[in-house]
Amino acid sequence: MREATKIIPVREQIADQLRSDIISGDLAPTTKLNEQQLANRFGVSRGPVRDVLLQLTKEGLLVAKNNCGVSVNSVLDPSMQELMVDIRRRIEVFAISQLKGKLTEMDFAELEDILVRLQDAFDAQEFNEVTKADIDFHRYLVHAAGGDELINLWYPIVLRMRMNYKRISKPKDCVDEHRAILEALKANKINVATTALRANIK
């Protein structure tokens, strides 16, 4: 039986595109965003755009100021970036500690699919898709460990980090690091998975 095509709501499509634009640098830090211009771009009314701008503000990608409207957030200075990395690492190490014996064969299959997406994105040099697959891999583990509550703590930190994230370099290294995490989890070796995770988050 063929799997039904997932229908993605318009608001999610707009949010996803704007996230990509910000993380890739197409929308530079401090760029002011205009609701009407965005509505025209996406062919929608201003209502959905306003909802998306509020959502991305909560995620930390945008900043709203009275009488100044909404603009792309500034990049973090090095010390703040280091702090964000440390907080993210702590959350994910906690998540890994909660996964002992918890992941199923279906979970591993989903994670394998994400690694295929990651490799394919590198092969196609589609670095926005590389970023999405990278985030999706970690989000899957965080959600499996703590559900929406842990995701809501983790996600804004990851997105804020990604605004000036320069670490991704060699495709093989990136894929191999994620593969090491997955193989350790398959073997239920939580200490090994934690070590692999720490090596990946830098």
Rank of each mutant, 00 (worst) to 15 (best):
2 R>K: 14
4 A>T: 03
5 T>A: 15
6 K>P: 00
6 K>H: 09
9 P>R: 09
9 P>Y: 02
12 E>R: 05
14 I>N: 07
18 L>Q: 07
24 S>G: 05
27 L>Q: 08
29 P>Q: 06
30 T>F: 15
31 T>H: 12
33 L>N: 10
34 N>C: 07
35 E>C: 10
37 Q>H: 12
38 L>W: 05
39 A>Y: 04
40 N>M: 10
41 R>S: 08
43 G>D: 06
44 V>I: 09
47 G>A: 13
52 V>C: 10
52 V>G: 05
55 Q>V: 00
56 L>A: 08
65 K>V: 10
67 N>K: 14
68 C>A: 15
68 C>K: 10
70 V>A: 05
71 S>P: 01
74 S>N: 10
76 L>E: 12
76 L>A: 12
77 D>I: 04
78 P>I: 02
79 S>E: 15
79 S>G: 02
80 M>V: 06
80 M>Y: 06
82 E>S: 11
85 V>T: 12
86 D>G: 12
89 R>V: 00
89 R>F: 01
92 E>F: 03
94 F>T: 02
97 S>M: 09
97 S>T: 13
98 Q>R: 15
98 Q>K: 14
98 Q>I: 02
99 L>R: 05
100 K>D: 08
102 K>T: 06
103 L>F: 03
105 E>M: 14
107 D>Y: 00
107 D>K: 00
107 D>R: 01
107 D>F: 00
110 E>N: 08
112 E>I: 00
113 D>Q: 10
119 Q>S: 12
120 D>R: 14
121 A>L: 05
123 D>G: 02
125 Q>K: 08
128 N>S: 11
128 N>W: 03
129 E>A: 13
130 V>R: 09
132 K>I: 02
135 I>M: 15
135 I>G: 09
136 D>G: 04
137 F>K: 08
138 H>D: 07
141 L>D: 04
143 H>W: 09
143 H>L: 06
144 A>H: 05
153 L>V: 11
153 L>F: 14
154 W>N: 09
155 Y>S: 12
155 Y>M: 10
157 I>F: 01
157 I>V: 13
160 R>E: 07
163 M>N: 04
163 M>T: 09
164 N>H: 06
164 N>W: 01
172 K>P: 00
173 D>R: 14
173 D>M: 13
177 E>V: 04
177 E>D: 13
177 E>F: 03
178 H>F: 08
179 R>N: 14
180 A>W: 01
181 I>W: 01
182 L>N: 05
182 L>M: 11
183 E>P: 01
185 L>N: 03
187 A>C: 07
188 N>I: 04
189 K>Y: 05
190 I>K: 12
191 N>G: 12
192 V>S: 15
192 V>L: 15
194 T>Q: 14
194 T>H: 03
195 T>H: 11
196 A>F: 02
197 L>T: 01
198 R>M: 15
198 R>K: 14
199 A>E: 13
199 A>F: 05
200 N>V: 00
201 I>D: 03
